[in-house]
Amino acid sequence: MKRIFLTLAVAASVLVGCQENAKDEALDPQQSIDMSDFYVETEEVSFKGESEQCQSMRVLNRQVKENPGLYKKMYDIEYATRRFLNAKGKPGGGSGGGGDTGGEADVDVAPIEDGLGIINIPVYIHIVYPNANSISDAQVNSQMATLNADFRDTNVDQLPSGTTFANDATDAGFSFSLAGVFRHNDPKSSWGTNDAVKAAYPPITPSTHMNIWVCEIGGGILGYAQFPGGKESTDGIVLGGDFFGNTGGVYGLGRTATHEVGHYLNLRHIWGDGRCRQDDFVADTPNADSSNGGCPTFPSTSCKSADMTMNYMDYTYDACMYMFTDGQRNRMRAIFQPGGARASMIN
């Protein structure tokens, strides 16, 4: 009888152990997560046709040198993003080894079933100019309208679809609400990209609000953003006033903010800042050897495939960009999952 009980006990423990192992594997499919293509810093920043308008990657390079722990933190954020997307069976969190597939890996995928609904992000705007009223309320409101249109795929500037990529523009599922505008009359003529404007006028509750500073950056720079994982004291986005909201000109439709918010929500430049061999960690965007500028005629080809020049994470003119992909949407939303880098913004 004792032998029978012992046999049953061993069998029960084996069954429980197998169930626990299966549960662990389901929660942490580590073997299926390829991090071989992960990078933070990039020494090769390349563009085609336009100057370096966005300084987000150069700012990231500087922050990593100043804060050695940032690399590990961003690695962990990337691992968590890929783990979540793998568990959901959704592309968007990196393909390993720069393995983009010409923009066709995620065709007609239904919105990610992440249980988050439309994610609203409250926004504080800090206007820092010698005359802070030079950025009008109408300009502020036009920028908010552009963000809402671009991230919900209701913008009116879309080019005809169906002749470019099988995966057309998608609804990213974000809305933006204006929480407050702070105007600071400051005589400084140029703030640069060393976060000096953030030190002078610190972000307000950055764990729950997105902060945007509007100021004269200088050097022809349109804007820069901080990726998830950086210090709270510098978290947010800096935009040049000439490129904030509807101001006219080729960068005057508010798309600089859309681009920088993409970085803030963990998107890289669509060309990966490293020519054909370096990925943007999104499976349904094609490899590219550099940025595109102006308003290219389709197809603009590099890396043996057509570039997705109309993507918000390229450098084309505002009127000639109109889309995020499904993979980009899924990647941005992953950081709002419980324990994610921006989960504290969920009310």
Rank of each mutant, 00 (worst) to 15 (best):
M1T: 10
I4A: 07
F5M: 12
L6T: 12
L8D: 00
V14I: 14
V16Q: 01
E25T: 09
A26D: 11
Q30Y: 08
Q31Y: 13
M35L: 10
V40L: 04
S46M: 06
K48C: 07
G49K: 13
E50N: 15
S51M: 04
S51F: 03
Q53H: 10
N61Y: 03
Q63N: 13
K65D: 14
P68D: 11
Y75D: 03
Y75F: 15
A80S: 13
K88I: 00
S95L: 06
G99V: 01
E104P: 01
I112R: 02
L116K: 12
L116C: 12
I121F: 02
V123H: 05
A145S: 14
A149G: 05
N155S: 14
D157W: 02
A166M: 15
D171P: 10
F176L: 13
G180A: 09
F182D: 06
R183K: 10
R183L: 02
P187M: 07
T193A: 03
A196Y: 00
V197A: 02
T205K: 15
M210E: 00
N211R: 05
V214G: 08
V214R: 06
C215D: 04
I221V: 15
A225E: 00
G230N: 12
S233L: 01
I237L: 01
N246I: 14
G248S: 13
G254V: 09
T256G: 10
A257S: 15
L265F: 13
H269R: 04
I270Q: 08
D273Y: 15
G274H: 07
R277E: 12
D279N: 06
V282C: 12
V282W: 07
A283G: 14
C295H: 15
F298C: 09
S300N: 14
T301A: 08
C303A: 12
M310P: 05
M313N: 03
Y317L: 11
G339A: 09
N347L: 08
